[in-house]
């Protein structure tokens, strides 16, 4: 019964997700839908690191870029299909995240966040200014174009709708994985590190190992998303994938929806991406600054009045209602999202 209940939101996501293309007829809306879903996916990937484990990385876009470039180079020069390329890209990004994480985890709090931004900026500079990297032509500011084959085998799908289904499938995978992690030993260790790493260590948690694990998982998923993202354009350049925009957006959507919860990142992106797009369209080129201003204001308000994100605020509201009737149950309800009771 309990497990059944848990899968209801997932079922809703899949069913609604599958029906979206029948409602959205135009290419523009389909592209928007792809954005919404891929941001849900990235925000969920970041959630494993920033939400569950509490490692506030602000430059995780670097793994989108690494995923994108590795996939592009493998396809352009080695003819390796992005279907395989994206997995290799994920592994490369994961490895990079561990290599970087090792020294960076000596830094705490703000310094860790700053280091993650610095890393991304370095990658952006290198990929934007160097025409060749390790002897491989990556095009610098011109970027790198995928040869058009039009074959599904090369992840070159016939319509936006097909790409949409692809990113939807990725989203479902990352959510299922997150749910699995959250309820496993690893997830408990992530959350204990987030809460208090010294106390966690004294209870037998190898803090460095689990921080690196979180880093690897998050980087892997982020990079796979980056691979698919650029394949939809058949083009990659440094500004597009290493920019601050992507990195900050995934963090913001996750926090707005509710970090450290399974559905927070999904809700955050579902609300904010359309608002962002609508504001951009409504304000036009002349008033581009205005859309950013309204967007920023909305962010401030949510942060002020809903510090635990939208999902957190809703949970609190439900808990309050229940307290009025059955006080002791409130705590259990508040924690319902984290796996429920275990009265064996």
């Amino acid at each position: 019964m309990k497990t059944l209940k848990k899968f209801i939101p997932m079922a809703i996501l899949i069913v609604v997700g599958l029906f979206v293309p029948t409602v959205l007829k135009s290419q523009f809306y389909m592209q928007s839908a792809i954005y919404v879903v891929i941001y849900m996916y990235w925000a969920s990937s970041w959630n494993i690191l920033g939400g569950y484990t509490g490692l506030f990385a602000l430059g995780n876009g670097v793994y989108i870029g690494v995923g994108a470039y590795v996939t592009a180079v493998l396809f352009v020069y080695c003819g390796i299909t992005p279907w395989i390329g994206m997995i290799i890209a994920g592994l490369v990004a994961g490895l990079l995240s561990v290599l970087i994480g090792y020294p960076v985890f000596k830094l705490k709090g703000m310094y860790y966040s700053l280091a993650s931004i610095a890393l991304m900026s370095v990658f952006e500079l290198i990929f934007n200014n160097e025409m060749e990297i390790f002897g491989v032509y990556t095009g610098g500011p011109n970027g790198l174009r995928f040869p058009v084959t039009g074959r599904a085998l090369d992840m070159q799908l016939s319509s936006k709708t097909s790409y949409y289904y692809l990113v939807l499938a990725l989203l479902v995978i990352v959510l299922l994985f997150s749910d699995y992690i959250q309820n496993s030993k690893t997830g408990f260790y992530f959350r204990s590190i987030r809460a208090n790493q010294d106390a966690a260590a004294s209870l037998g948690v190898n803090v460095l190992k689990y921080k690196l694990t979180a880093h690897f998982i998050s980087a892997f998923f982020t990079a796979v998303g980056g691979a698919v993202y650029v394949t939809t354009f058949l083009y990659v350049n440094a500004k597009q994938v290493f920019g601050m925009d992507l990195s900050f957006s995934m963090v913001l959507f996750c926090i707005l929806g509710g970090a450290n919860t399974l559905w927070g990142p999904v809700i955050g992106a579902l609300l904010m991406v359309p608002i962002q797009q609508a504001l951009r369209v409504a304000a036009g080129v002349e008033l581009a600054a205005l859309s950013s201003l309204i967007y920023g204001l909305a962010l401030c308000l949510v942060m002020l009045f809903m510090p635990d994100g939208l999902l957190g605020a809703i949970k609190k509201l439900i808990a309050k209602r229940k307290t009025a009737t059955v006080a002791p149950l409130a705590a259990a309800v508040t924690d319902a999202g984290q796996g429920g009771a275990e009265d064996e």
């Binding site: 408990f188 204990s192 809460a195 966690a200 209870l203 948690v205 705590a331 259990a332 924690d335 009771a341």
Partner: peptide, 12 residues
């Protein structure tokens, strides 16, 4: 671990 239940604290 404030955001975790007592049982989950002990489970760590």
């Amino acid at each position: 671990f404030g955001a975790m239940t007592v049982r989950h604290n002990v489970m760590v």
